[in-house]
Design a protein around this nucleic acid. Sequence first.
DNA 1: AAAATAGGGATATTTTATATCCTTAATAGA
DNA 2: TCTATTAAGGATATAAAATATCCCTATTTT
Lengths: 162, 162
Amino acid sequence: MILKSQVEWALHCCAILAGLPEGRYLSTKALAEFHGLPKEYLSKALQGLSQAGLVHTTLGPSGGYRLAKTPAELTFLDIVEAVEGKARSFVCNNIRANNPCRPPGYCESDPCAVARIMWEADEAWRQKLRSVRLSDLIETLSKDIPADLWKSSFEWVLERAG
Amino acid sequence: MILKSQVEWALHCCAILAGLPEGRYLSTKALAEFHGLPKEYLSKALQGLSQAGLVHTTLGPSGGYRLAKTPAELTFLDIVEAVEGKARSFVCNNIRANNPCRPPGYCESDPCAVARIMWEADEAWRQKLRSVRLSDLIETLSKDIPADLWKSSFEWVLERAG
DNA sequence: AAAATAGGGATATTTTATATCCTTAATAGA
DNA sequence: TCTATTAAGGATATAAAATATCCCTATTTT
C-alpha cells in the first residue's frame, strides 16, 4: 500500500508555489523542470489540485498555477486528498456475511468491527496530516535548506513566473 | 492507496482462530469456506502470518493453524504488517535533489521535510493499530454478533478443527 | 496573428494485486 | 505400511492500478 508519487510531487510543488509573489503564476513546465519530473504526468497532479480548489490557474503565456489560499490555510491533508482521493485505505468487503451459519435473510446493520478499527487508524493518519499546514512545511524547509540554495531557487522560480 | 484484501482476510481469520480451544488447529480449507474466500489465495495470507510467527501450523489431516500467542498479545499492527509488510506508505524519491540551482556535489544529509511529515502520519496510523489487541476485537465482536449466530459459528468451527 | 498555457480524452507501458495450479514434505489415521 | 490430507512455496496467468505519453481544444498574453 503505497501512495502515488504524485502526492510527493504535489506537496513539493505547493511548497514552491507558496513562495510565489502575490498575483503571479508558475507553469507546469517550470514546476516539472525544477523537480525533474515528467511534465505531462505532473500536469495530472496539478489538475487534481485545481479541481479541489487548492490552486488558481490562468491560461496563455505567463499562465500557470498559484495557491488559492494562504499556506497557513492549506493542510497536508488537503493536498494529499486532492491527488490521492478521499477514499479510506481499508475497504470492507463484508466477508463475515459469508458465514455459513448465518440464518437466511439475516442482515447486518452496522459496519463490522474490523472495518471500524481499520477506519479509526485511517482517521488517525488523516488527523495527523490535517494538523500540519503548508506554512509549517515552509518554516521547516527554510531551516533545513542552506540560505544560498534557498535564495537561488527563489530567483530561479521568479524568472519563470508569469 | 488501498490495503490488500488479504489484510481483511487475515484479521477475520485471526478472530476465528482466537476462539479455537487450546491445542487444536483449523485448516485453510475451513477458514476459506467460513469466509467465502478462495482457498489457494487465502493460503498466501496465512503463510504471511506463519512467517511472522503469529500462528503455529501442523501438517497432515487435522492439521492447520492456531494462534502462536494469546489474543491479548496480538495487535492489529502485528497482523496487518504480517500480510501487508512493514514498508511505510510514503516513499521519498528525493525529488528536491533535482533542483537545478543545487551546486554540483551538494549532498543532503537528512531526509526531506515532506517525507518526515508523511512518515509521522504513517506512524500515527501504525500507533493506532498497535493500540488495538486481537482480544479487543473479540470483545467487540461478541457484543455485535447475536448470541445464537456466535454459538453456531463456534460449533461450525469446532466440527472442522483438528 | 502567433505562441504558450491548462484541461482533458485516448492510449500505451509497467507494476502490483489477485488468483490458480502444481509439486514437495510432513503428518494423522486406517 | 498405505492413503488421505495438510502447509509451503514456486510458477504462471489474469485483472487492476500506477505511470507515462500523445494529441486536441479553448483560452490568454504578447
